[in-house]
Design a protein around this nucleic acid. Structure first.
Lengths: 113, 113
DNA sequence: TAAGCTGCTAACCATTAGTTAGCGAAACAG
DNA sequence: CTGTTTCGCTAACTAATGGTTAGCAGCTTA
């Protein structure tokens, strides 16, 4: 088995798989991008992530919060306003995924649909 | 809206989202990793990607082939042997995702489950 | 008064994932 | 010659996830 620079051990493969599948769950990447683009409030995310429904947005925000990629702050104003912010870990994740932007551009010309 | 270095335009956001969700589909990353680790035959992938079923492996290989990340070669031996190889594009994708290995390590200490 | 925004949740159907079984043809073991 | 195994799949079915629509309480705005 060759390709030594791309090969990982079992344990690392598992963690790698888990991470990619976390980021790649439907809407997750788009939500994190929205956070990076400045979204804070629920409705700002809904506006930036086009096509997502309230239900899925609420579900993903909760999930990303549990994973420590987003944090939920409740401001005790009247009425309360809730803001969702990227954590350093979440911010780092999208910056690591950023190279895929270029990759996706090169791919368009190569694909047949 | 700040975070200029992480922000993208609409169009690029869409492509970014599509790419991450492609790579992040269940088993996709693990299959590409298996290819990078040297798997060629169907059964080699099945052995390296632990937990996957025949059905899903067949489905993902077909899908990744359509996306131009893997190519399927039929050797006219008796019986025919089929080999699945990463394309340059597929190889580039996993190498771009590689930084997530380190990221996933730092995350373990920060998460609460 | 009516209408709308905010951040959700409930109820429901559609799509995707996961499990188990089996298939034809060839190789291999007895 | 007769099992049994391997290879690369597919069919049939259940479980999990995703998507759609509606609505809610508490406020603001017209």
């Amino acid at each position: 088995m060759s390709d030594s620079n791309l090969a990982l051990e079992e344990e690392e493969c598992r963690r790698f798989q888990i991470s990619v599948e976390l980021a790649g769950r439907k809407w997750s990447a788009a939500i994190l991008m929205a956070g990076a683009r400045g979204a804070r409030r629920f409705s700002e995310y809904r506006a930036l992530v086009e096509g997502i429904s309230d239900r899925l947005l609420a579900a993903r925000l909760k999930e990303l919060e549990q994973e420590g990629l987003i944090e939920r702050d409740v401001q005790p104003t009247t009425p309360v306003s809730i803001s969702y912010n990227l954590t350093p870990s979440g911010r780092q994740l999208i910056s690591l995924l950023h190279p895929l932007v270029t990759w996706s551009r090169t791919r368009q010309s190569a694909t047949t649909h």
